[in-house]
């Protein structure tokens, strides 16, 4: 699993939740908030990305995430740890 692949999966989950967003504009340094996600949308995106990656990570782990890159980092680390 590469970082690019995880980013693609996160983008896919963003697309499901923020259906009117142009995904080609989404960059790792963007925060979900600036893309228009409200607090519940942000949790939806996180949980959906976990599901797509078959990961189960306690939601508190995402507490300090400030942008998409931070989300990708946690998912990638856990995915690698899970083998």
């Amino acid at each position: 699993m590469t970082e690019e692949k995880v980013f693609e999966i996160v983008k896919e989950s963003i697309g499901e939740i923020l259906f009117d967003l142009d995904l080609s504009l989404v960059q790792p340094q963007h925060s979900l908030k600036e893309l228009g996600a409200n607090s519940i949308d942000r949790m939806e995106i996180t949980v959906r990305a976990m599901e797509m990656l078959s990961l189960k990570i306690p939601l508190v782990e995402f507490g300090k995430v400030s942008n998409i890159q931070g989300l990708v980092d946690i998912l990638l680390t856990q995915k690698k740890a899970a083998g």
Partner: peptide, 12 residues
């Protein structure tokens, strides 16, 4: 099956 994957929007 997987409680972790319950959509958070369920709360609403």
């Amino acid at each position: 099956e997987s409680p972790e994957y319950l959509p958070p929007s369920y709360a609403l």
